[in-house]
């Protein structure tokens, strides 16, 4: 599964959110989208997920233009985890995850759909919550429900918008481990993430975004003191700890 984005442009009214973005995610790659608020990360993910339509350029999945695909066809390949839990009517956790199987069944979920849901709940440590309602969960647990929903969807590309934003440290690592596990089994993942160090620990490649454009892309060597200042407006020191880069922020420029 290969994702290719060519010259993608999106505007909200007169505000240009993406000003021509070109990038690629290969099979079994875990790619971090980094950049400050408003740099276009969420817009990019929503466009790949088919929620927004490209106004210029195009998104290709395995060489096929996303615009020509049926919603369901795209949903069989691409899963999307929104940034913030949208307000919703309460559902049981089991049902909230089961709904991720929607692209796979038409009338009623079958045995395989139920089994996959139970397995993912187990893997995410959500089994004991399965009969609870989503409005009784903490922010972190809801976030995990959203990720579980994308996992049961059985897709080859996962798009995650700040998957760790509402989680405590332990849950952040758990969730990143789960995503990494998926990637190891051949799934590609593109995630927008604020925590640069978490990204450095887990991701294979990095895309730095600034004001709707790609500032730089590559391996962890692109995360430099200069890049942190240019993209985030932050003075930082980069140290090597156990062979990995660690960003130590010092203060705003």
């Amino acid at each position: 599964m290969i994702l290719e984005i060519m010259g993608l442009k999106i505007s909200y009214g007169s505000v240009e959110a993406l000003k021509g973005v070109t990038m690629k995610v290969g099979e079994g790659e875990m790619v971090a989208l980094l950049g400050p608020n408003g740099s276009g990360k969420t817009t990019l993910l929503k466009t790949v997920a088919g929620i927004l339509k490209p106004q210029g350029g195009a998104v290709y999945i395995d060489g096929r233009n996303v615009e020509g695909m049926e919603g369901r066809e795209l949903a069989l390949k691409v899963g999307y985890v929104p940034q913030w839990v949208e307000k919703s009517l309460p559902q049981s956790v089991f049902n909230a995850v089961l709904i991720g199987r929607l692209p796979h069944f038409s009338w009623e979920p079958g045995e395989e759909d139920l089994r996959k849901t139970a397995d993912v709940l187990e893997r995410m440590g959500l089994s004991e919550y399965s009969s609870r309602y989503t409005d009784e969960l903490s922010g972190g647990e809801r976030q995990k429900v959203l990720i579980a929903r994308a996992l049961v969807q059985d897709v080859s590309l996962l798009l995650l918008d700040e998957p760790t934003a509402n989680l405590d440290l332990k849950h952040q690592l758990e969730v990143m481990d789960i995503i990494k596990g998926e990637v190891k089994s051949g799934v590609s993942a593109l995630l927008a993430i604020h925590d640069v160090n978490l990204a450095l620990k887990y991701c294979d490649r990095f895309i730095l975004m600034k004001e709707g454009r790609i500032y730089m892309k590559g391996g962890e060597e692109i995360i430099t003191e200069e890049a942190m200042e240019e993209v985030y407006g932050v003075k930082a020191r980069i140290e090597l700890v156990g062979g990995h880069r660690v960003v130590i922020p010092l203060g705003p420029v």
């Binding site: 088919g50 919603g71 949903a75 049902n95 692209p103 929903r149």
Partner: peptide, 20 residues
Amino acid sequence: RWRMSALDSGEDSARSLGVN
């Protein structure tokens, strides 16, 4: 009914699950 239920979880979620 399942499409409506997907919509209960949020508009963006429903769209990403292929619901028009």
